[in-house]
Design a protein around this nucleic acid. Structure first.
Lengths: 263, 263
DNA sequence: CTTGACCTTGACGCAGCGTCAGGGTTCCAC
DNA sequence: GTGGAACCCTGACGCTGCGTCAAGGTCAAG
């Protein structure tokens, strides 16, 4: 007769595991000796080894019982199902590996490739890092809301980056961030934004943006995100209102609904 | 300002997950409105998306915090470590797949290939299935105790199976199991076992067994397993004692230690 | 008689939430 | 203003397969 620890060691499992199998009814509770110790026989070893064999093959304990007394057909289909589960889990883990490999590559934390490329272009153009990070966070939000439109958005942004005024705008703002805010340069920035907005309105660009980014609440969220990020942005938004423009990530003439020209 | 469900839907997670992240300190608790509702801003969306990005890549929540504010080097080495873990888990699952594939093949439940082959040979020789199953369970135990010696054991058993008396012995026992026990045939079986044991002793086979299966307690366990499996085996063991033999899976002259010829 | 190695039951811990239960709140329609 | 639907809140258990104390009783050796 065996004690629980000898049983466990013959089967290559821990004592705790054996007691667990008792608890879940996988292994029947054996007789006890006069001091309450469990006493096992060889049949228990065989059963325990069978349990471990299945468990080691990835069979959930809840299914081990069924499998142990399944006929050949049931066993076969059960095994096939377990194999499907294992394959799925392997696929998921491999997908995880791909994901973290991308993360290791850098900025791509939560960002589609197009955005990463755009941010790299910004840096190449000499846009200050603080602004790039602001853009990045904004695009994390955009990509969460309109993942399928990101390539189109990015194409537009890349084109915009070819306009020297865009780069100058970023550099002016970066300068304000670094060297403190003064009204003169602030107004110059606001004028520049107004000029570019005007042009975007003329070209129909703003209308297109309104169509594509058709979620007032979400746009408001992003704009608030921008203004919360730095008081400078809040000041600029006020100056823009003076110039007849509201909004930030999607500019809009004050008091005028761009879709029909009326209030 | 966002409610928890809008925050969750922007980030593509469940409300419960958001609350969980609050609980484990991954996402700071935001302000509450006057009725106690949590009110989020866009920064929370960004943070939440970042958390999910890492979690989706298989990063344990407990490490997400560190990774979010790690510098490039730390991030790289952390990612490398996580990738190692993922690879290990994939390997383990693939090992599981191999295991259950073997299980699907049949008898191999907990048995080394050599034993499976031996059992197949037994069946081919016409040994009754009940006896084959008895052998199988016995060898499950043996393989657990002496996995490295199984090839050697099986070579011996295969050779033994070529002796026509061995096959006849199994068939006689099978006959007794099927048609009920009578003393005459029982004695014939015992005589046969005695004869073969005698020969094994002469050839030094028994001494070799004693060397290789050097664990009295374990042998006693297996023998008790045999005798518990059917009263017939118990009767036979008694008859063998009358003929000067004790044991079962490893025969031994009564009262004589085979290692030195003395008591 | 004392160790040290076993044995017993009971209960918490882990990872990442899902899923009630048992409430309050907000908002919209009638 | 009054339902009802759709939210929000906290608290707590459940799942998987044991690991790991805690607080005792038992057994074998020296």
């Amino acid at each position: 007769m065996l004690t629980i620890s000898r049983l466990a060691s013959y089967a290559g499992v821990t004592v705790r595991a054996v007691r667990h199998y008792h608890q879940v009814g996988l292994l029947p509770e054996p007789e006890r000796d006069r001091s309450g110790y469990r006493t096992y026989n060889a049949a228990a070893v065989v059963r325990l080894i069978r349990i471990r064999t299945l468990a080691d093959a990835g069979v959930p304990l809840a299914r081990v019982q069924d499998l142990l007394d399944a006929d050949e057909d049931e066993f076969g289909s059960a095994v096939a199902e377990i194999d499907r589960r294992l394959r799925r889990e392997i696929r998921e883990l491999q997908e995880h590996r791909r994901q973290i490999a991308k993360l290791a590559a850098g900025d791509s934390l939560s960002l589609p490739d197009e955005v990463v490329h755009y941010l790299d272009r910004m840096r190449a153009k000499g846009v200050p890092e603080a602004l790039v990070e602001g853009e990045r966070d904004g695009w994390i939000l955009m990509a969460a809301r309109w993942p399928e439109k990101i390539p189109e958005f990015m194409a537009g942004k890349l084109a915009q980056l070819e306009d020297p005024r865009t780069v100058r705008l970023y550099q002016l703002i970066g300068d304000l961030l670094d060297n403190g805010v003064d009204d003169e340069r602030l107004n110059a920035v606001a004028d520049l934004i107004a000029e570019m907005s005007e042009q975007a309105a003329q070209s129909g660009e703003l209308d297109k943006q309104h169509e594509e980014m058709n979620d007032e609440g979400f746009i408001a969220l992003i704009d608030s995100f921008a203004s919360e990020s730095h008081p400078l942005v809040e000041r600029l938004q006020e100056l823009m209102v003076e110039r007849g423009w509201s909004g930030w990530s999607r500019m809009e003439r004050t008091g005028v609904d761009p879709r029909d020209g009326r209030r």
